[in-house]
């Protein structure tokens, strides 16, 4: 079978080709302008950022040296030859293991308090739950504030107010988690099926009853799933809370980096990474279960 490819007469094809060229030219011009803007911005930013490529390429070797040094003990032996010396800190009392436990606990308490706060504020900021625009916008702005200010800034202020230790870390993580979870929660709430809500309202249920029996069953599994994800993020964050004295293993890590205890740095980092990975694996299974049973929850 011979396929006839339809070809237009020349004058029509030429007009189409010209139109295509015009469209492409406009697009090209836009791309060029965008690229030019990015280049100018890069130039300005590298002035303000004190970019010094010569220094970078001159010293890049010391970066890889540093990474390499992390895996050698003070004696000069490779860390893998003597793991008990490498991880010496985990057998010490009030050293790495208790501090790691403290890190996880700071993250957990922060997540739970943040979850409770987000639960209350998310219903207040959801458009389909609260009619008053004033309450809704106030709740929204407050949540925005809580998640925009970095955790570490809250931690710095709380360390001054509450003193050194895990408490300021817990509160800093709680406030940030509340802001982040509150936004996600209110988006979940805004997407629920409104029929149960209307059904309950028609029977004369009050606001709290409506939320308890119409909204919560629909949203609870997503809420828990988001909170478990947040917990994992918070463990990571709690690992650096110690940098400003807000509890956890961060203090120990900072000291090791500042004092060039190379093998300690790699050991602590590995402990943090393994902990985060274990939590990730554990919560992932729970989350998959939760998502699977979402429709069955009533």
């Amino acid at each position: 079978m011979a396929l006839a490819v339809p070809t237009l007469p020349d004058h029509q094809a030429a007009a189409l080709a010209a139109a295509y060229a015009r469209v492409v030219a406009v697009k090209r011009r836009q791309t060029m302008i965008g690229a030019l803007a990015v280049i100018v911005l890069v130039y300005v930013a590298s002035f303000y950022g004190e970019v010094d490529l010569a220094k970078l390429f001159g010293n890049i070797g010391s970066f890889f040296n540093y990474i390499g040094r992390l895996f050698y003990l003070d004696t000069g032996a490779h860390v893998f030859t003597n793991p008990s010396e490498w991880f010496w800190g985990i057998t010490q009392k009030s050293k790495w293991l208790p501090l790691l436990f403290e890190t996880v606990m700071v993250a957990y308490l922060g997540t739970v308090i943040g979850f409770i706060g987000a639960l209350c504020l998310s219903f207040m900021s959801a458009a389909n739950m609260v009619k008053s625009a004033l309450i809704r916008n106030t709740a929204k702005r407050f949540l925005e504030f809580c998640r925009t200010v970095p955790e570490l800034v809250f931690a710095l202020i709380f360390v001054v107010a509450f003193g050194l230790g895990p408490l300021p870390g817990v509160l800093a993580l709680a406030i940030h988690s509340m802001g982040a979870l509150g936004k996600l929660f209110s988006e979940v709430i805004e997407n629920i099926d409104m029929k149960p809500v209307e059904g309950l309202q028609s029977t004369g249920a009050n606001w709290v009853q409506t939320i308890r029996f119409a909204a919560i069953p629909q949203v609870l599994s997503s809420f828990v799933s988001y909170s478990l994800l947040r917990f994992e993020v918070n463990v990571r964050e709690a690992g650096i809370m110690g940098f400003v004295g807000a509890g956890g293993i961060g203090q120990e890590l900072l000291v090791s980096i500042r004092k060039f205890y190379y093998s300690d740095v790699s050991a602590i980092l590995i402990l943090i990474i393994v902990t985060v990975m274990l939590i990730d694996l554990g919560t992932e299974r729970v989350r998959h279960k939760l998502i699977g049973r979402e429709s069955r929850w009533s």
Binding site: F63, R236, E237, I240, I257, I273, V276
Partner: peptide
């Protein structure tokens, strides 16, 4: 999994 702050400490050495 290594935080930006820790990378910053390492790059300061470089």
């Amino acid at each position: 999994s290594v935080d930006t702050l820790i990378w910053a400490l390492i790059w300061i050495n470089v």
